[in-house]
Amino acid sequence: MVIDEQIVKDCIAGKRQAQKLLFETFAPVMLGVCMRYCHDRDEAEDILQEAFIKVFQNIHSFRGEGSLAGWIKRVIVNHAINYINKRNKIARHEKIDEIKETEILDFNETVEFPDEYNPALLLKLIQDLPEGYRTVFNLHIFEDYGHKEIAHILGITENTSKTQLFKARRWLKNKIEETRIKKNSK
C-alpha cells in the first residue's frame, strides 16, 4: 500500500485515474473493515462506496501527519458508525441486564477454537453479533479505542461500553464453544 504524495495531490485535484488508483489500493483492506461492522457484503460495499466519496471530498484535509491508510480507515470507521447510527440499530442496554464488575473480571478470555485459521467463520461470528455488541467490540478490539472514546463516539456511558464489550466477548465465546462441541461430537 504505497501511495506517493503525487497521487494524493492528483486526488485533491480531482483526477479520476489517481482516485481509481487510491481506491484500488485501499479498497480491499477497507472493505474488510466495513465487513466487520455490517451484516453482509452488500451493506459493506454500500458503506465503502459512500465512505470513499467522503475520502475524496476531504482528502485535502489529510496533512500527512500519519499514514494515509490510517486516515482513510478512520474516515471509513466514522462513516460506518454514522451509517449504523442512522439506522438506529445500536442497542442501548444501559439500564437493563446490568453486569457486575466482578462478573467482567472473572471472565476467562481464553478460548480453544478448533478452527482458528478459518477467518471466514470468525467474521461470520462477528457479523452475527447484535449490533450494539458488534460496534463496541470492533472499536475496542480492532481500532484500539478505549471505553472513554467509545462512549464519546457512540454517545453512551463508559459502563455501557464495558458491558457491551463483556457481552460481546461472552456471546462469542459461547458460540465458539458450541462450534467446538459440535465439531468434537462429529
Binding site: 479498497a27 480491499p28 483492506v29 472493505l31 474488510g32 465487513m35 466487520r36 457484503r41 459493506a44 482458528e116 485459521y117 478459518n118 477467518p119 470468525l122 467474521l123 462477528i126 480492532f142
Partner: peptide, 8 residues
C-alpha cells in the same frame, strides 16, 4: 484472524 482481512 480477521484484523487484516481483505476482500476484493
Amino acid at each position: 484472524a480477521i484484523g487484516r482481512q481483505e476482500f476484493s
